[in-house]
């Protein structure tokens, strides 16, 4: 899940809805999928564009922290696996931009909003990958947290988004297993490798918990999104599920989750755990994470340096069309 703090319109009570809005809500309540050409409230369209766009941006910015280790991957096999993984992320970006396009916004428009700082990507990608174990931790924790949110989104109300999620989830769960396999190797390796593995968990644990967004009590946009089935579970539900799933995995690796207050709670059938430092989260969202400048800078540079390339292709396509045109007219 790479959508955090997605703004939604205020929740409407049924008596405030127009007949169209009522019919629309009823379709969603019946579990029907909404398709691009069908009528939808403007708020639904805008919220989806924000959410899908943020998700798409996260996929492409997410190439950078992992791409950071492709040239330094320790074996040919690890290099090939990582290349394939980063390529998958770019592919996810492509499906998602296409899903957003069905709502009437082009990929270029969304990119420009990203580059201008007017759209966000997930806070997690503003953290650095400092050792090879971080590549394991990103797969295990970051993809693990993403899957936690994306599996329910396969049932989201908007057809193209739901179909993109089904495809993406298959690949993400593969990535998570690959990440965990790296962690296993490191945790069973030399003392230095174990140290790298523990260090990666120490640094990625809280940023991974932040991926679910602020606590429900502070999450102002959830209610309408949930009514529209753009959001299926609350932030806290998903975070709890993630912790419950991940703690035994860390124990299996022989690693320690960096939370002295982590404790199994028999009554709720889940772990009690410490909240991440939300002031850090808001700083990262505001642009002050360790890598914000580098990440966005790299994307802007790629875009600007590539302008001649895109223009060249367009010009060629126009020339070809012009060459064909007289023939077609005859």
């Amino acid at each position: 899940m790479y959508a955090q703090l997605v703004k939604s319109e205020g929740m409407k009570a049924r008596e405030e809805m127009s007949p169209e809005e009522i019919a629309f809500q009823e379709r969603i309540d019946r579990g029907e999928k909404i398709e691009p050409k069908e009528w939808m409230p403007e708020g639904y369209r805008k919220t989806l564009i924000r959410q899908i766009g943020q998700h798409a941006h996260s996929e492409i910015v997410g190439q950078l922290p992992e791409g950071n280790w492709i040239t330094r991957a320790p074996t040919l096999e690890r290099k090939a696996i990582l290349l394939a993984k980063v390529q998958d992320e770019a592919g996810h970006g492509l499906y998602l931009y296409s899903a957003a396009e069905t709502l009437g916004v082009s990929r270029d428009e969304l990119m420009e909003l990203l580059h201008a700082g007017k759209m966000k990507y997930s806070s997690i990608f503003n953290y650095p990958t400092l050792t090879w174990a971080d590549i394991g931790a990103v797969g295990w924790l970051v993809d693990g947290a993403a899957i936690m949110n994306q599996v329910p989104l396969q049932r989201t109300s908007f057809g193209p988004y739901s179909r993109a999620m089904i495809r993406i989830c298959k690949e993400e769960s593969f990535h998570q297993r690959q990440g965990y396999a790296i962690m296993m190797k490191m945790a069973q390796g030399t003392p230095e490798q174990k140290r790298m593995a523990q260090d990666a968990l120490n640094r990625f644990w809280y940023p991974a918990l932040m991926m679910f967004g602020p606590s429900d009590k502070d999450s102002v946009h959830s209610a309408q999104s949930m009514a529209w089935k753009i959001k299926i579970n609350t932030n806290d539900e998903l975070r709890q599920k993630f912790v419950d799933q991940t703690v035994p995995q860390a124990e299996y690796l022989g690693l320690t989750v960096p939370d002295p207050d982590l404790k199994w709670n028999e009554d709720k059938g889940g772990y009690d755990f410490s909240e991440p430092d939300w002031s850090e989260f808001f700083e990262v969202i505001a642009g002050n994470g360790p890598c914000n400048k580098d990440r966005l800078g790299a994307r802007v540079r790629a875009w600007e340096d590539g302008a001649w390339f895109r223009e060249g292709l367009m010009a060629h396509a126009e020339k070809q069309a012009a060459r064909r045109a007289p023939v077609a007219a005859e």
Binding site: I60, Q63, L64, G67, I70, T71, K79, L83, A84, V86, Q87, A90, G91, G93, L94, Y97, R107, A298, R301, A302, W303, D305, G306, A307, F309, R310
Partner: peptide, 18 residues
């Protein structure tokens, strides 16, 4: 592979990685 994430278009990132 040094281009990964830095190509001028998403399609190129995918193709070059391939």
């Amino acid at each position: 592979s040094e281009w990964c994430g830095h190509s001028p278009a998403l399609e190129e990132d995918i193709a070059l990685a391939n």
